[in-house]
Nucleic acid binder design. Sequence first.
RNA 1: GGGUGCUUAGCUCAGCUGGUAGAGCGUCGCCUUUACACGGCGAAUGUCGGGGGUUCGAGUCCCUCAGCACCCA
Length: 954
Amino acid sequence: MTAARSAEGTCAGQVPAGRYNRADMDKVYAPHDIERRIYERWESHGWFAPSGRGAPYCIVIPPPNVTGTLHMGHAFQHTLMDALTRYHRMRGDDTLWQPGTDHAGIATQMVVERQLGARGIERADLPREAFVEQVWQWKAQSGGTIAAQMRRLGDSVDWTRDRFTMDAGLSRAVVEVFVRLHEEGLIYRGKRLVNWDPVLLTALSDLEVQSEEEEGQLWHLRYPLEDGSGHVVVATTRPETMLGDSAVAVNPQDERYERLVGQTVRLPLADRSIPIIADAYVDPAFGSGCVKITPAHDFNDYEIGLRHGLPQINIFTPRAALNEQAPERFRGLDRFEARERIVAELAAAGLLERTEKHKLVVPRGDRSDAVLEPYLTDQWYVRIAPLAAPAIAAVEQGRTRFVPESWSRTYFEWMRNIRDWCVSRQLWWGHRIPAWYDSLGNVYVGRSEAEVRRKHDLPAGTPLHQDDDVLDTWFSSALWPFSTLGWPERTPEIAKFYPTSVLVTGFDIIFFWVARMMMMGLKFMGEVPFRDVYITGLIRDEHGEKMSKSKGNVIDPLDVVDGIDLGSLIAKRTTGLMQPQHAPQIEKATRKQYPQGIPPHGTDALRFTVAALASPTREIRFDLERVASYRNFCNKLWNAARFVALAVGDAGVPAGAPASTPAAGRHELATADRWIRSRFGRAVEAVEAAFGEYRFDYVAAALYDFAWHEFCDWYVELAKTVLQSDGASAAAKQSTRRNLVEVLEALQRALHPLAPFITEEIWQWAAPLAGCTGPTVMLQPYPRAQDFPADDAAEREIGWVQAVVLAVRQIRGEMNVNPSRRIPVLLQAASATDRAFLERNRAALERLAGLGSLTVLPAGATPPPAAVQLVGELRVLVPMEGLIDASAEVERLGKRLARARQDLEKARGKLASESFVSNAPAAVVATERERQAELERAVSELQAQLARLRGLLP
RNA sequence: GGGUGCUUAGCUCAGCUGGUAGAGCGUCGCCUUUACACGGCGAAUGUCGGGGGUUCGAGUCCCUCAGCACCCA
């Protein structure tokens, strides 16, 4: 690749004529073909790779599920990451956006199991190796989807560095971390209660539990006292667990039961004796104040059991059916069947006192939605508190910064109450735990079986069996910022890019991922994994609902880009539903909302939209109307470029006429040219500030406003007054052409991070005309504000022009004067400055306001009856003769007068207050005084004008 | 029970360290002006959730109430 331009980024040089005439450009921007072609070119030239020069800038992508597809949330976050990446690349940083995908253990395994199920195959029917092979095949088959989607979205990731969490390198990192943590005693194996998913047959971490309040019942059961003196009543939401009870507990303060503590009850059905114990955990106000204690099936009871040395009686099989601990007749029954049978038997025996409705919190698996069981099993845990402490400190000390800052509170809250992390999963798809067992049950942890044998002196003949379990997917994700860069090797990429610059992710995975990366990064790299964490909101539909397949409100980002007809959209939303009965409802809603389907908008419009929506709020409603408005913006930009192409024409812009080059033969810039450059500089300044604080909405707004409301609305129109005037010199015209092309070119660079495709397309022909060389806009320097310095004089002058034009347009608009009708305008009370501005900008005023004539009235002259607008002290008069109805004008002025009077009253009130005048800063008081004076002038003018007009009315 | 957000124009949302309420979409009026009708020009629209306080001055700071959403237990 050629170093296209110096870092200073001046544009100067010979301009080839003729080659770039784009007068034949389509009238309407057609993104589809352009985008694909452009992306292929970027990628094939290797332009996404770090340049090897400049300050390192690195973002690691939150790895999407390898077999999944990108949804709108991805499109949103990828846009922001890509904008940052392109911006920093253009600023000359050595920029890496590291791509990759996640093996997503449970999610992927479930998909493959479902596929096999459709072919009548159970996972258990296959040997482990065969199943895992099936998953790899599915990955190979579907894994390209995400990459294809990312290419359509324009993501400038370095594809040559693509990583997958199950790659050999990353797997090595996983093993290394596991072994080292184990060596330090930070990973241990233990038998304790875990959240068990009886459908997926695996343990889950606390974070994968979704607790929801649900309607249930509270059963009040009678447990007979052993001595026959009566019974106690225990209340439970889970009567079936009574078979595993080891005690009944009361609060030690509870006088009602004081005498019972120490006695025993006869546990019905199970026919066992269990003690009555006292424990402060028991809430005397709940139910009867007596609770049954089931240490093997309830987290609180487990703790109580440990305190009192109670037996842990496991009554469930892994599928949550009753096991051999239960009486014969219950064995094999599912937990919910068992519940009914047990309640029935207790009722028959007169041991069911009563039943009441009760709300309870039910834990469900976030993947299976199955009701989870607290279940006693052997699992591997990470002792997390020692890892959390430095991660808390790092954020406290500002070594990692949350943006918006308030999310650090959420982070702290969780980290300070963190609990050990269960990392083993009873799955087949994932990183197998690097632990081996001998026939005696001894456990050996090591990087490989060979290492284990070596380290523990185990002869080759000793049979060893590797742990069957795999690690939680998030275990490998936690290493992502350094494993992708080559760790545990000491690679140049690690030296350069770690710590990474920023992590862009949603608040939903602060605990799952951000916190764990912080802990692992600090532990193994000795430094935080990223300087900034930019937390995005979550994309919702236009009603604020979460987008989900089951709700049928999902919008595929590529459907917004390419468009989709109604039939295909309905098909997409209604096939493969978990609950097919919802299909008609979804179809109806879809038909209503998108009767025409979704029209194509192009990638840039989608990107601009999500950037504009990225304000620092938690919930971002995706609105297709909004995309349409940015598609219109792209079209506007396209047509502005067409205009410039037509204006420049075949001739090109001759060398020697570069407007911005401080060289001999340079033409003096016209005021309008200086003005647009000054305005552009201010826009760039705003963009720089906005990028610095991750305010992509401000970035979008600043560029949108400049491009549309300054460049298109005013500058292009001002330029026309030169280009289409007989009076302007050839040199002036050339200078204007030059400036048009230069600002257009710079604008493409400024817009490129948000709208990479259209800007590349326009830049390709605009750049040579502006004297820039280089193969692509994406490697050009980002415009710098100092190259477009503020020009207050030009801004004052053009500001005056705008005000005069607006004055005439207001009269015209409010009086419904046909825009094509050229009208005479008189200027009264013109100051020397007004006259100077007028003389320099007469042509522009006449054109932009549609004037037939523009006359300065001599002092003392009496104007004809006219509609009036004030520009400072200058009076802009539109004679009414034949144009304006006097009564309509009276009405218009009456409204204006009323408003002016109201404002004047407010200003007077303020200034009349002694406390305001003496307490407010002098500048504020002075402004208020000026304002009052101006309003007073306006009021008297309007009154006088009204009086004159009323004289004309019958 | 603990915590965090949110409540501003018909809709979706901006409003930084307190100093004359903004944008996009929509609405209304005029216009096929030779870059663009995916357009141009103009207009209307808000007791900034309620109440109280601090202040010369509050959408902005503090307290309180209400409603909505989310997280943790």
